[in-house]
Nucleic acid binder design. Structure first.
Length: 544
RNA sequence: GGCCCGUUGGUCAAGCGGUUAAGACAUCGCCCUUUCACGGCGGAGACAUGGGUUCGAUUCCCGUACGGGUCACCA
């Protein structure tokens, strides 16, 4: 009996690997095109770090005329979550990320290199495992969890490196006969790689982002096929990325230390290894120390958070791009109207150390993104958001024509207003523009001039003598100045500042009184525009 | 603990042996013919640390400290 017999016993039906090698033909892509992928395990939760990763992959594929595909890594049945695939696909779609190829729903994929769901690729992994088995490069291991535990304890007690390797790999040198017998006895087992690595030797590898890294060779006999018959991540990674012809693997830096294992696997299988780009983890400040954004503690770790808060997807993407390529900011300043895809993204310019997530900066980016939108765009997006997350706002926006006017205030000119950074702020910032949300009898907080009688006097005189909806802006403001003067206030701020003792206040204080009476707040956009959007009747009604 | 990776202002970051060490956010002050949001100008604020190498180190090498990652039949 030899290895082939063992291989046949374990995987009697597995095909020869040549079948798959021939089935998946070479991709026909332009020179330099990158094939990359996003390969989540379906936990139903899209982390901001994952979005970062997909963004990078997709930028690289687009830039080079390549392919970005979606592969589902569902080899851990214990973690399976119903509907998770659809939810990930939809979350990504919310951010404008769609794949050229790969999984499209819970069961189906599109493209010539599928299936794109690992649980549907079992026979493929078996073929490759059988291939290794038949050459004696992999073997069945009968160690029980208890045995493995014991082994580790022993190693720890002796202060040795833990793991299943070298002389500790108890079943590595079991004879074929013994193995066959155990299998026939129904003993459970996994398939392990018979690692040819030597811990004393180093391997050198050039990561696209991290640059040169050096590791000891892998000498662990890692599991490639688990007890449940499904492959481990490592094995599936090698087989899938080879067959799907991935040329660039973008993944989190927590994978960096598996490089020796992965390179070894590619090598033993006779595959050409892809390039790897290990991207830094997005961190958060927690007290004194940094830590990974956590799905349990930090709502902003989940991509859906941004959707719910109404932070536009463009903002999130721009912020992320900012972290990735710091020259993006400059580019954006020079090209305010260009699409993100026109930015010449450089993957090797991504910083090597983990970036802290900075919500303040994110909102600043967002504020600028929103300021570049037209009133129509703002309307559409706010409306869409409100439909889902804020019914009251949604109702307010029903009169589209009016809402457009509201959003058009100080927008579309060379110095657009920058006061909205997320849709969830919109209601509060525009509520006074709606009569049914405005209570003229509420107690407003006035500024310098707060005497009730004085306020009444100012407003009354304004409405009776100076208010004319048909005035142009200059005339309108001149009249406020006249009003100020008539009431004994300085008509220019500068005048007041040069001789502050001469007047009780200035034109700004007067306009503040009108502003507060009209809107209920001290800070608003341009009063003249507000008056015109509100219309004559409302203005008179509120000021009377 | 072993093995990796990292460390430039409060934050994100340029920089690749000789720079007054960019820029952005935040912060502070002033200005911008009404507030706020903008915009403009200016201020404060950094190369973790100790040794080398070098005429010269933020940049290269080694150690230390600190931070992160990883050591599963999870990905």
């Amino acid at each position: 009996m030899d290895y082939k017999d063992l291989a046949n016993l374990i995987f009697p039906d597995a095909k020869d690997i040549s079948y798959y090698e021939e089935k998946y033909v070479k991709r026909n892509l332009p020179e330099g095109a990158v094939v990359t992928r996003y390969a989540p395990s379906p936990t139903g939760f899209l982390h901001i770090g994952s979005l970062f990763q997909v963004l990078i992959s997709s930028m690289m594929a687009k830039k080079t005329g390549g392919i970005n595909y979606l592969r589902i890594e569902d080899t851990d049945q214990k973690r399976e979550i119903e509907g998770a695939i659809t939810s990930v696909i939809n979350s990504l779609k919310d951010f404008g990320i769609e794949f050229d190829e790969g999984q499209i729903d819970e069961i189906n994929g599109k493209g010539d290199y599928g299936p794109y769901k690992q649980s549907q690729r079992k026979e493929i992994y078996e073929a490759y495992a059988k291939y290794l088995l038949s050459q004696g490069k992999a073997y069945p291991c009968f160690a029980t969890p208890e045995e493995l535990n014991e082994l580790r304890e022993k190693q720890e007690a002796a202060k040795l490196r833990t793991g299943y390797y070298g002389v500790w790999a108890k079943y590595r040198n079991l004879s074929v006969e013994e193995a066959v017998e155990k299998i026939k006895n129904g003993e459970s087992y996994v398939i392990r790689l018979k690692s040819p690595g030597n811990e004393e030797k180093k391997i050198r590898h050039k990561d696209v982002i991290k640059g040169n890294v050096e590791f000891p060779e892998n000498d662990q006999d890692i599991v490639i096929i688990k007890g449940d018959g499904l492959p481990t991540y490592h094995f599936a990674h090698a087989v899938d990325d080879h067959l799907m012809q991935t040329t660039l693997v973008v993944r989190g830096e927590e994978w960096l230390s598996s490089i020796p294992t992965h390179l070894q696997l590619f090598n033993i299988l006779g595959f050409k290894a892809p390039k790897y780009a290990h991207i830094p983890t997005i961190m958060k400040m927690d007290g004194e120390s940094k830590r990974k954004l956590s799905k349990r503690k930090d709502p902003e770790a989940a991509v859906d958070y941004y959707t719910e808060e109404g932070i536009p997807k463009e903002s999130v993407l721009e912020y992320l791009l900012n972290i990735a390529n710091s020259n993006f900011e400059i580019w954006r300043k020079q090209n305010p109207d260009k699409k993100l895809s026109e930015f010449d993204f450089q993957i090797n310019k991504i910083g090597v150390s983990g970036a802290l997530f900075d919500m303040v900066k994110m909102l600043d980016v967002s504020k600028n993104v929103i300021s570049r939108m037209s009133a129509e765009e703002v309307y559409d997006k706010v409306n869409e958001w409100a439909k889902q997350f804020d019914e009251e706002l949604s109702v307010m926006l029903q009169n589209k024509e009016y809402a457009l006017k509201v959003f058009g205030i100080e927008r579309g000119n060379t110095k657009p207003r920058k006061d909205i950074s997320k849709w969830s702020e919109v209601k509060e910032s525009i509520s006074y523009m709606f009569n049914d949300k405005f209570d003229k009898n509420a107690q407003f907080e006035y500024a310098k001039i707060s005497d009730k009688n004085e306020i009444e006097k100012i407003v009354k005189l304004y409405i009776e003598k100076y208010f004319d909806i048909n005035d142009d802006k200059q005339t309108w403001f001149d009249k406020i100045k006249d009003l100020a003067e008539e009431l004994g206030y300085a008509r220019e701020v500068k005048l007041f500042k040069s001789e502050p003792e001469k007047w009780p206040g200035h034109v700004g204080d007067i306009s503040t009184v009108i502003r507060v009476t009209l809107t209920g707040r001290q800070n608003t956009p341009d009063l003249y525009e507000i008056i015109h959007v509100l219309g004559k009747d409302t203005v008179i009604e509120r000021l009377s």
